[in-house]
Design a protein around this nucleic acid. Structure first.
Length: 264
DNA sequence: ATACCTGTTTCCCG
DNA sequence: CCGGGAAACAGGTA
């Protein structure tokens, strides 16, 4: 589930835990989501602290606790956050259960492509402050898009837009939605875009990001009915604009849905 | 059984 | 050293 707006929605599920103390931490120590970190550190750092705030940046989340403790979460492919009752029992794929007086804050991830990080210090961690502007921020500009197309001119457009270094938050379905609206083939080489095409593409990045945040980001669920989103998951659907068949194929290493009669 | 999957990281090649 | 592509990661689902 987790692209920009789904991450924002997942993040909001822990809101009831804000300003509440951590009274217990249950860890699944062999989960891959801990990567190089010693999972013990998460318990040591979080226990007794108070969750103060949460924020999202693209697909990344940061939870700030008292005494300058920071928890970073990336949901990977199958990660999700849940709010559970205080007596919740840890389930198989739960990587961490953070217990409070009234609730448990749960991060679960069956495929374990997600990632947890913990940081303690006077400032925010570098892996948070070094992120480039996410696609919903004002300082995400057309210049960033232009620079990316020049530097990676041989890269397929689909693959370029999935690069989190330039487009934090964009994921597979959002990129398909953007390219469909911009009428651009996912297999175009990035360097072949004209100035006008870059301008249109930028506009659609902003449109899809904003539209997703205003629907999925607030309420969960799906984006608006007329979006490509609703036709991209299996074969046989028609393009909502042209009523011609949509194509599903692997482009740039990812399943891609597009309309050959519309996208050039 | 087999193929497929909303994401990154690592490895290999030119 | 780089840009770009494929494979790997791991488990659930169709």
């Amino acid at each position: 589930m987790p692209e920009l707006a789904e991450v924002a929605y997942a993040c909001s599920k822990w809101n009831l835990g804000i300003n509440k103390k951590i009274v217990g931490v249950i860890i699944q120590p062999d989960s891959r989501v801990y990567r190089k970190f010693d999972s013990k550190k998460f318990e040591n750092f979080l226990l007794g602290k108070t969750l103060l705030a949460s924020e999202c940046h693209g697909k990344q989340m940061l939870f700030t606790f008292s005494e300058m403790i920071f928890l970073g979460i990336h949901l990977g492919m199958t990660g999700d956050l849940e709010l559970k009752p205080k007596n919740y029992q840890k389930e198989k794929h739960d990587a961490i259960v953070i217990q409070q007086a009234k609730h448990c804050l749960v991060f679960r991830d069956p495929r374990q492509f997600g990632r947890l990080r913990i940081h303690s210090g006077k400032t925010h961690p570098n892996w948070w402050t070094n992120l480039s502007p996410s696609v919903i921020e004002k300082n995400f500009t057309g210049e960033i898009l232009h620079t990316a197309t020049v530097k990676h001119r041989k890269k397929l457009l689909k693959a370029l837009l999935l690069d989190q270094q330039y487009f934090p938050g964009l994921g597979n379905w959002m990129v398909d939605e953007i390219l469909w609206r911009a009428k651009l083939k996912p297999s175009r080489l990035s360097g072949t875009l004209t100035k006008l095409e870059i301008k249109k593409l930028f506009k659609q990045i902003k449109f899809v990001a904003k539209g997703a945040m205003n629907s999925v980001g607030i309420f969960g669920g799906d984006p608006p009915k007329n979006w490509l989103f609703h036709r991209r998951w299996k074969d046989g659907h028609l393009c909502p604009k042209t009523k011609t068949p949509l194509l599903r194929e692997n482009i740039g290493g990812r399943t891609t849905c597009w309309a050959p009669t519309l996208q050039k």
